[in-house]
Design a protein around this nucleic acid. Structure first.
Lengths: 205, 205
DNA sequence: TTTTACAAACCGACTAGTCGGTATTTCACT
DNA sequence: AGTGAAATACCGACTAGTCGGTTTGTAAAA
């Protein structure tokens, strides 16, 4: 697959440009000029600039959902599932930082027809994580005194926020950061009696 | 102060409209129409739409910095300082949710002259928190095996992300959420030997 | 009289989307 | 395989509309 389709080149260029300057500050003219194409070519592949934005959103969130579900299916205890999901998510966030930036900063620019679909998928992603937390609480592996919705959003926030500050050129790799996050989350929510199982994921002092 | 100045009315309306629809989707015409004023009045009070956006940013971040610093000054141990800052921050985030949405989603729309100032202040806010973490590590109250920069960003992410999902009409108040966050953070980072001092902030199971 | 505070019409730059056209590929039929 | 027609992919000048900002006007305050 040496030859990239024009459509793919448009998407790739847009992801880059949208991340840098934001959806509204990037014109269709600029996108096509950037890849040496034309407006005709653009509107042959997309019915609108909106549709392009939607496609970028969808590719990303669908991938996140699929990966999260795979991490869930691969293991069978709350702690291992949670760790796998944390690892998977940060990995995705490492690779798709540009997509995430667009996903979380430009979703308001989606027209109504698209935003419903995207919002549903976003909720689905959260639900997968929340299910792990809830199941862990039922099994008394995670502390039941913490509301599982808040715990879920605390974790989601911690991870999602990385797109704002993580630099691949920074002093720590995403793997190292993941280890710290995993440590913090497990310490925060695992019960005393289940801490034995979690010990292997805790950083030694 | 029954009479609000036009300037204040413009700011208030803009905060509301920007949060709802985003900076680029709200025209100056719409702002002035919303409050029953004119474009002349707008440009009498602001030299540009950019300046208005800047002012909204600045009011908010300056307040956050001031409140964070006050929380720091009010106490004299890492744990109490951290708890006070968590409480202060979530309180601010409860009150200024619209400002925060704008602050974190529209800062890219700031022109260069303004964005430098805002970015510096944003870093300053983070530094105040990071200092508490670092001081806690020096005092062996917080675990030194966790890099303080990552811990800081994990906390910042957890708190900041609330602006995406917290609803004042939701089942939990911001105070209750703060208690959960505080519990999780302390459990995650306080050392075994200092846990005694932190116990009062931990939710009992 | 000058300044302040706002109103309302207006302008110029910019941009999403269109449309008529051309190059390239696909494919049915010899 | 070779051919030609139809479908597909792409081009680029043009348009209609939008929006930030300006200019001119005006009434009250200082």
């Amino acid at each position: 697959m040496v030859k990239k389709t024009l459509k793919q080149r448009i998407v790739d260029a847009s992801v880059e440009l949208f991340q840098q300057d934001g959806y509204h500050n990037v014109t269709v003219d600029r996108i096509v000029e950037y890849i040496g194409a034309s407006k005709g070519g653009f509107y042959h592949n997309f019915k609108s600039k909106d549709e392009l934005l939607y496609e970028i959103h969808d590719v990303f969130i669908s991938y996140v959902i699929q990966q999260s579900q795979a991490a869930y299916d691969k293991f069978d205890t709350p702690i291992t599932r949670l760790c796998a999901m944390l690892q998977t998510l940060t990995q995705v966030f490492d690779m798709y930082q540009a997509h995430i930036t667009i996903f979380y900063e430009e979703s308001r620019s989606l027209s109504d027809e698209y935003s419903d679909i995207i919002h549903k998928k976003r909720d689905h992603y959260r639900d997968i994580l929340q299910r792990v937390i809830a199941e862990g609480q039922e099994a008394k592996v995670f502390r039941t005194e913490l509301p599982c919705t808040i715990v879920t959003m605390a974790i989601v926030g911690m991870i999602n926020w990385t797109y704002k500050w993580f630099k691949q050129s920074g002093p720590l790799t995403m793997e190292q950061i993941t280890d710290v996050f995993t440590d913090m989350v497990l310490r925060a929510i695992v019960t005393e009696q289940a801490m034995g199982e979690a010990k292997q994921f805790i950083i030694k002092g």
